[in-house]
């Protein structure tokens, strides 16, 4: 459920972004209501599910990038969308996004997309990739305003070890060295396969 709320926290960004001049601003009282909602969470299957501190920070950062302050009406609409999603999660006893059925996931994503479409003053796109579980909000120029992985495990610590390029480079070098030695040896007549 907390990951569903993470998706909805992304919706709040839709209502906040106004122009390409992304000067930071303070969080206003209406935006604070959303943060309070994320902190309060929801009761799902006997468990109070909230966003993690990191996810709330993500929302705060994007509230601060807003040039146009979120209005009370904007927040009320977003809270209504959050409540819709909570109902879906409660009906399915789904604490995590992965606990939902495919149809329910599609419904949750559709709610998010509808919230984006309802914003008339700015051009924004909400996207969710079902293969990578990455949710994004982009502005009209394709800039990514927010990006998060909606998964069951914590996504704070990333993979920062050997990347594929270097690993394959090393393995390729070894194969080339061995293969090349074989070819050279054969050409010089050191190997007789006949």
């Amino acid at each position: 459920m907390k990951k569903i709320l993470a998706l909805l926290s992304m919706l709040s960004l839709v209502l906040l972004f106004a122009s390409s001049a992304m000067a930071a601003t303070d969080i206003n009282e209406f935006e604070q209501k959303l943060i309070d909602k994320f902190t309060e969470g929801a009761l799902i299957d006997g468990e109070t599910v909230t966003l993690s501190e990191e996810e709330i920070n993500l929302a705060k950062n994007f509230f601060m990038r807003d040039e146009i302050d979120l209005t009370e009406a904007d927040v009320d609409g977003l809270l209504a969308a959050i409540d819709q999603i909570i109902l879906i999660a409660q009906g399915a006893n789904a604490v995590n996004f992965s606990d939902l059925t495919s149809a329910q996931k599609l419904e949750v994503v559709a709610i998010a997309e509808a919230a984006v479409a309802a914003i008339a003053s700015v051009e924004l796109t909400f996207s969710y990739d079902f293969d990578t579980n990455v949710a994004k909000i982009l502005d009209g120029s394709g800039n990514i305003l927010a990006e998060t992985v909606v998964g069951d495990d914590s996504t704070v610590i990333k993979e920062t070890g050997n990347d594929l390029l270097m690993t394959w480079s090393v393995l390729s070098a070894i194969v080339l060295l061995v293969g090349g030695s074989f070819v050279v040896a054969r050409r010089k007549g050191l190997l007789d396969l006949s």
């Binding site: 992304m22 000067a23 930071a24 601003t25 303070d26 950062n61 994007f62 601060m64 990038r65 994004k136 800039n143 990514i144 305003l145 927010a146 990006e147």
Partner: peptide, 12 residues
Amino acid sequence: PISEVTMPYVGQ
């Protein structure tokens, strides 16, 4: 002042 801070986009 916070107005002097430009929030970067993801990947910026």
